[in-house]
Design a protein around this nucleic acid. Structure first.
Lengths: 218, 218
DNA sequence: TAGATTGTTAATCGATTAACAATC
DNA sequence: TAGATTGTTAATCGATTAACAATC
């Protein structure tokens, strides 16, 4: 019984609304209109109202939106009213950086385990969580509820580990490996492809330079 | 003298084409049709042909695309035929992880400097690049060509540093700070907002669970 | 030549923007 | 009540898909 399907574009934007509302809240702003928010966020007021109305009417005519209420509601939509147990597969630089990042906990994402194949890393503690060997993963998954697995491992190892994780029951993978994971439809994958992000930047930089060259000619 | 403007959606997809073609090349695949590529990438053949034809006709009727040629051409479009000098602002966990990541160099992105405010980090070397104090940044920028600055600093510090960097002439910022940078139009910003990425994952995980609950009822 | 597959135009679909009646 | 601003419908715009003539 699907209600009207929410488009990917809307979901992509939700966290940004959440961030802006969080900042308004920190600055003790009580209410905001779609028009004012649109000016801050550089999007159209129409888009804001359309996006929000996918999930319900959070505003009030003549008043606008109550910042705290809207912040809380978007938080609920994003699932941030719950807590999530995370494991990190791959205790290299990036895996360790994620493990050290305290901001995730503030949002309810708790790192419960870090795994690697490198025996030299065994037992090293990162913010109270010690690195385990990957062969302990299956036991760990049996004895703990794990909601999300972050994959910070080389691309060639990622597909096989992802498959294992799915077999062990994981339903959400935060994939930092520069490869696509072809997993069953009931497993959510969120990719963070840093190399691709950097390529987009170099594309834009190149486009910028070419524009400059052209206007130089004029 | 703008040619037809390339849409953002197309640019977003280009690095993924590049990645798939790179893998085909590694596997010694010589040619590929849009149809076969579309099956691997799970997009339509039509979209692939439309996307590529924004930049020119790289294929041949009856044959398809030569993998090596197309790979090279997309590389050029993305600006990967050039080398870029990068600096990292913020030598925390994430900054150090980026500095340690060797894959960027393979693509022509060279890390030339790492800066931080923390005097304890001064002089520590990461893969041959030693951490400098941020007050040396201006001199460094005068004496070196820097194409890209990666910002791995707290969100409250990011806007001011970004403004400084722009003043010093930077034209491309790879922003990992969880905030928007409002910079002049001739400065390219590519955002990597990890917290937002994680929220999208929790949204999807929640949506998945709700779907399951509903089908349980039936 | 016949078959295959592109490049490209036309049709469809979906997302964004505009407009405005409802209503606080 | 009058003014402001939402929620929502309608209009527009752009992106995706389909179709096919061109051509290797």
């Amino acid at each position: 019984m699907h209600e009207k399907e929410i488009s990917l574009a809307v979901i992509q934007r939700l966290p940004r609304y959440y961030r802006y509302l969080g900042e308004l809240l920190e600055n003790d702003v009580v209410r905001i209109s779609s028009k004012e928010l649109s000016e801050r966020m550089k999007v159209t007021a129409s888009q804001i109202r359309q996006d929000l109305n996918n999930f319900g009417g959070f505003g009030q005519q003549g008043y606008g939106y109550n910042v705290e209420y809207l912040y809380t509601e978007i938080g609920k939509i994003l699932g941030l009213d719950k807590c999530y147990n995370l494991i990190i597969i791959g205790a290299g630089n990036l895996g360790q950086a994620l493990a050290n990042y305290t901001d995730f906990e503030r949002r309810g994402f708790y790192i419960r385990g870090i795994f690697d194949v490198n025996p030299r890393l065994e037992g090293i503690s990162i913010r109270g969580t010690e690195i385990r060997m990957i062969d302990e993963l299956e036991d760990f998954m049996k004895n703990n509820t794990v909601h999300i697995a972050a994959l910070t491992i080389p691309k060639l190892k990622a597909p096989a580990i992802a498959k294992d994780l799915v077999r062990m029951g994981i339903k959400a993978i935060w994939n930092f490996a520069p490869t696509d994971l072809n997993l069953p439809g009931d497993v959510m994958v969120e990719n963070v492809h840093l190399a691709e992000s950097l390529m987009r930047l170099s594309y834009n930089l190149k486009a910028l330079e070419e524009n400059n060259d052209e206007s130089d000619k004029n």
